[in-house]
Design a binder for these strands. Structure first.
Lengths: 251, 251
DNA sequence: GACAATATGTGCGATATATGAACAAAAGTC
DNA sequence: GACTTTTGTTCATATATCGCACATATTGTC
């Protein structure tokens, strides 16, 4: 890369941070080099830089990220109006329906939670702002994919690893595209235990004042107490209500 | 900087990300240059790099961070065992006492939330993993400062902007140090509306198996329903119980 | 609409960084 | 414990980046 408007040292460093993940909390220099495709010498320099700045700890062998890294993501959550505007509406919604309510946006093939009001836990994993789920099998993901032009949605599905989380997970691209068309038509998506057995959810898009879809909100409920068939009857109106209220507030 | 093991381009880039914050969500090149102290040309290159990589959007004038930035903080939250281990205990605790429970660690002069189980909202601001509060006037902050050697705690207080959030906020360094001594002695800290009127909280330290304090947990309650004097009676034992259970699980 | 005041874009020499190979040091294997 | 393999560190040099100064564009003011 010869671009004069691109700081490759910076880009490499960000790659190094992203090398740390769920399954790889402690990484040695060589691990990072392998994960990022960087030269070992370069990976080492990036890691030492992180340590020097206090974003990572180094015990002479392994590097571990420190909580200071959270400043970076926090810069987004506190700097972006959307999470702040949506949060109180989610709180009220969650309290009214006695279920968890969340808001998310699309980042590549995943949905990213940007706000959440949780009632008692139903999911096995703990969702919070910054959490990610594959878009194709999450209710908000379906809504957000449906809001894209068909080819873009298709392209994203193509680059997604379509695996079955439960026996009910839809993984056939053609059937997913058909479902997206239905979602686009009807204005909401219901997921019946496709991500986790025992969990249903329903989502609607959040439009801004110009009618562009900027996010999605959903309600999740235990399948045992709220069968999928009832999700829309119970929760569609409350969700649509919030979406209507927010429409004029978002840009 | 002449260090051979330091990538200053990377360090500069991270500085640029941190320039975005609550009051400054949309920044022009010159703003970033001013905020970071970097040369305009450098700030511009870093920003264009962020945009190129999809971490920021650029409309030709202003830069805005995208949700992709959350991947960076998420790398910590998902890579670090502490949040995962603590979360289920907080969930159980919050349900038992019908109040919000949180866990945090120290980052400089601030506490950083790493996990949280929220019951109904009492605070005006919404706390979530990644959120920050000044250590000197938060219950978990007091506990974490008390766990440091005296000089370190004193040094941190010195570099803190000790402002009064409410008429009750302690801001005198000497009195704060005395309070830290008391906290160290008694093993818990109670905050009586020092951060926000109407909000009390109580925190205890979380030790690992070798007795080192690695985090703090707390319970927050509305002052109207639980006077500060009752906080310890009601919540100290549940908190201590969780700390005991976690001691062997943390390293 | 002309002027001043800021803000942004660009080319260049000086300087810092990446590269890959060579070396040193562990770690794993038999 | 000698051998192989992997990992970490160092170094010289080719290359990319920095910061400056200047050119251009945009914004605000009267």
């Amino acid at each position: 890369m010869q671009e004069t408007d691109f700081v490759s040292g910076f880009a490499r460093g960000l790659k190094v941070i992203e090398a740390f993940g769920e399954t790889t909390p402690r990484l040695a220099i060589a691990d990072v080099a392998k994960a990022t495709g960087l030269d070992r010498a370069t990976a080492r320099r990036c890691l030492l830089t992180l340590a020097e700045l206090g974003y990572a700890d180094y015990d002479g062998k392994f590097f571990v990220l420190t909580p200071k890294i959270l400043r970076l993501g926090h810069a987004y959550l506190s700097a972006t109006p959307l999470p702040h505007i949506v949060q109180p509406f989610l709180d009220k919604l969650a309290e009214e329906v006695h279920q968890s309510a969340s808001a998310s946006v699309l980042d590549g093939t995943e949905v990213v939670y940007i706000a959440r009001a949780s009632q008692k836990r139903v999911m096995s994993i703990n969702l919070m702002p910054g959490s990610r789920l594959p878009a194709y099998c999450a209710s908000m993901g379906r809504v957000l994919l449906a809001a894209l032009p068909e080819d873009e949605a298709r392209a994203l599905l193509k680059q997604t690893n379509l695996r079955s989380f439960t026996p009910r997970t839809l993984t056939d691209p053609a059937r997913l595209m058909a479902e997206l068309a239905r979602v686009r038509e009807e204005g909401f998506a219901v997921i019946d235990q496709e991500l986790e057995l025992g969990l249903c959810s329903i989502a609607v898009p959040l439009e801004n004042d110009r009618g562009r879809v900027v996010a999605a909100i959903n309600i999740g409920a235990p399948a045992a107490s709220v069968p999928a068939a009832e999700m829309a009857d119970r929760y569609l109106e409350p969700l649509k209500g919030v979406a209507r209220l927010l429409k004029s507030l978002l840009r």
